[in-house]
């Protein structure tokens, strides 16, 4: 269904949200920080069943969201507020 359940606003139409990026597969934990940064920035592992993404509810509450979707069906699997720790 082409709605995203915004944790703050409730279900809203997809057109209110803007996709930003896909998360790469877990970046390798090498000592080389720039190599990690490179993988994070450039590399993706395609999984036809699961895409983990950053979206923003730009045309609503502007919350940044962590969205899990199935890119083969468009099904939204989970949405949560984006949060993390300082770099």
């Amino acid at each position: 269904m082409r709605q995203l359940p915004c944790p703050f606003c409730g279900a809203r139409e997809l057109r209110e949200f803007v996709f930003h990026k896909t998360l790469p597969a877990a970046a390798s934990a090498t000592a080389d920080a720039s190599a990690d940064e490179f993988a994070r920035t450039y590399l993706r592992v395609a999984d036809p069943q699961l895409s983990v993404e950053h979206w923003q509810h730009v045309h609503g509450c502007r919350a940044w969201l962590l969205v899990r979707r199935n890119p083969s069906t468009g099904a939204v699997l989970a949405v949560q507020m984006l949060s993390g720790t300082a770099p």
């Binding site: 082409r2 996709f19 896909t22 890119p71 083969s72 468009g74």
Partner: peptide, 11 residues
């Protein structure tokens, strides 16, 4: 369309 998809269903 603006997000990864294999569906071939445009928004």
């Amino acid at each position: 369309d603006g997000f990864p998809s294999y569906t071939r269903e445009g928004v």
